[in-house]
């Protein structure tokens, strides 16, 4: 039994490495800026969805407020760069740390709630953050902050025309989230978290410390989400509350994980590979005139996938295997 799990986990690592190499090579033959941008955004959201998955999937806490950590991570690295000259390559770790810290602060009151009560509380907390940033002059208020261009540099993560460096930055980010999820799956923490997700009372009776488990998951999840926000801000060269802290964004972060397959290694990535291009393409081809067709398609896809594939798109591939002690893997 144990041997089989080790073998499976090793195979996942190999598949991950192959995918990583493929994604390293992917942009090389593509010269088109639009397509490269699409790939970068998709990989970024794959990483963000994986970060969400760590709390929402493995630990079962459905957060609809991850935009808060994303935005705060972005603001921290941006302000450190603009106000103090700290290079974003370092600043993004600071953004991640603050994001994780804020996730702990949010978790402290909210983790007493469960189910829908928790989900709504996270929406509200994120909205408070959004409104405060909107009215806070130091961070530029509703106008936001422009990041001045200081020449091509890896340290500053700034490139005037090239997209390729950003591709590798988001790829490294997504790979890090995947590796974190992989480590969690095999660790004692991962088992505790899944126990918390499946049955809090049973978990507690087995000696799982429920509250610290949720807090640990939130901190890791918040860290990566904040880091993603920092990378995003640097990529677009601009940050404001509407683009980085809105409730809409919180959904965009959670959806790939939910529709791809929650609590799985590959679900968030699959979800992002399908949903992000879908939303970007339909927006640029159908949403230009504000006609709303893109939203209709997006909403319809969410409803259909959620009802037809409750275990996520991943279940289409029969990749879901019975994880030890978790009641999943049933052929959906």
């Amino acid at each position: 039994m144990d041997n089989r799990i080790t073998r499976r986990r090793r195979r996942e690592l190999v598949v991950g490495a192959v995918l990583l190499v493929a994604l390293i090579l992917l942009p090389l033959p593509i010269g088109d800026v639009y397509t490269r941008n699409l790939i970068i955004i998709s990989i970024l959201f794959a990483g963000l969805a994986q970060a969400w998955n760590i709390l929402g999937g493995y630990c079962g806490q459905i957060s609809l407020g991850h935009s808060l950590y994303f935005g705060i991570g972005g603001y921290v690295s941006t302000l450190l760069f603009v106000q103090a000259g700290v290079p974003p390559l370092i600043g993004m770790f600071a953004g991640g740390l603050v994001g994780g810290l804020v996730a702990l602060l949010v978790g402290w009151p909210c983790f007493r709630l469960s189910g829908h009560y928790y989900a709504i509380a996270t929406v509200v907390v994120a909205e408070i953050g959004y409104l405060l940033f909107l009215n806070w002059d130091f961070v530029g208020g509703a106008m936001g902050v422009y990041i001045p261009f200081k020449g091509d540099s890896w340290l500053a993560l700034q490139f005037r025309t090239q997209k390729l460096p950003y591709h590798y930055v988001v790829l490294a980010f997504a790979a890090a989230t995947w590796l974190a999820a992989w480590c969690i799956e095999g660790s004692r923490w991962g088992f505790s978290w899944r126990a918390v997700k499946d049955d809090v009372v049973a978990a507690r009776s087995l000696g799982v410390r429920v509250f610290p488990s949720k807090m640990a998951a939130a901190a890791i999840s918040g860290f990566f989400t904040g880091m993603g926000g920092a990378i995003y801000a640097q990529y677009v060269g601009y940050i404001d509350p509407d683009s980085t802290m809105s409730g809409q964004l919180a959904i965009l972060i959670a959806l790939p994980a939910v529709l791809g397959g929650v609590g799985t290694l590959w679900g968030p990535f699959l979800g992002a590979a399908v949903l992000t291009p879908l939303s970007e393409l339909s927006r640029s081809y159908l949403g230009g005139s504000g006609r709303g067709v893109d939203l209709m398609i997006y909403g319809l896809v969410i409803v259909v996938v959620a009802l037809a594939r409750p275990a996520g798109l991943l279940s289409l591939f029969g990749l879901r295997r019975r994880a030890k002690g978790a009641p999943d893997g049933s052929p959906a």
């Binding site: 709303g292 209709m296 997006y298 909403g299 319809l300 969410i302 009802l307």
Partner: peptide
Amino acid sequence: IFVTFGLAIFIRGA
């Protein structure tokens, strides 16, 4: 959660 969310996005788009 996400069925009603999807519905909300659909209605808004419509």
